[in-house]
Amino acid sequence: MNALMKNTPNARSGRFFKDHLFVIVCLLAAGVCIAVLGVMLASIIVQGMEHLDTQLLQNPPSRKPEKAGIYPAMIGTVYICLVCAVTAIPLGVGTAILLEEFKPRQRTLARLHGVVQLNITNLAGVPSVVYGILGMTAFVELFQVLGSPSDPIWTIGTTDNWYYIQLPFGRGVLAGGLTLMLVVLPIIIISSQEALRAVPNSLRQGALALGSTRWQMVWGTTLPAAIPGIMTGTILAMSRAIGEAAPILIIAGVVYITFTPEHLMDDFTAMPLQIYDWASRPQESFHHVAASGILVLMAILLTFNAVAVIIRQKFQR
């Protein structure tokens, strides 16, 4: 016993010194992270408070910083995000169901299944700016095979109608929304897959043993159990869509727009674009407007995140 207790003091203290040193290093690292983020938030708040008023929320952009507002960009963001949600959620959840609930037994099909899965992983890693180029070619120009955006080969209604649609879509709300859909689709698929995977297998077996078909099993049992997880993931994906600037920048460009879109083909701008526009100007006064815009954007995103957290807490029992 005594022999055991009598440790070489040097070795012991050296080792524990390392342990304590590491704790200090860790705390320093964490402290640096927190400090940087704190500085970031503080600087944005300080710069942004100046213009954070109702004028900002109601006005169109202006050449004068004190009059500039973000209203058309907010409405533009709402429109493209609606298009994005309406298309991305069914497609994403559908793909997740295909991948998680319809795993094939046959060998060739199983291999194909693996290819689709790897493909999703790859899509999640594609830079969003590349999606912008894809959207530009596929949606805005329709591969340049069917006329051009300024001379569409096919239209419904005229530009005065709210239901005006043309092919190719041109640099409008629809093309922007669909491009955003491409960006968030892998995120929705992966989070929905995780939610479905978390559903215990016993529920699936129970449903099948009662004579459910695969789809009845999914619709009646698996999907309802996975809905909270899918909703959380989808909300986070949509908050990504709200803040995404690069692909929209390619689709819409930085245009001076003082009106809100009137139909799906109409020109638009979005909040991150407007912020980019202001931030990239040389005048410092516009940087302050950009900071105010960021505060509005962050407030919206925080609300989204809070909703996601609440949903998770509520269903996490």
Binding site: P200, S202, L203, Q205, G206, A209, G220, T221, P224, A225
Partner: peptide, 10 residues
Amino acid sequence: MVFQKPNPFP
């Protein structure tokens, strides 16, 4: 079929 662990649906 009745399983080892009760598996009522939620």
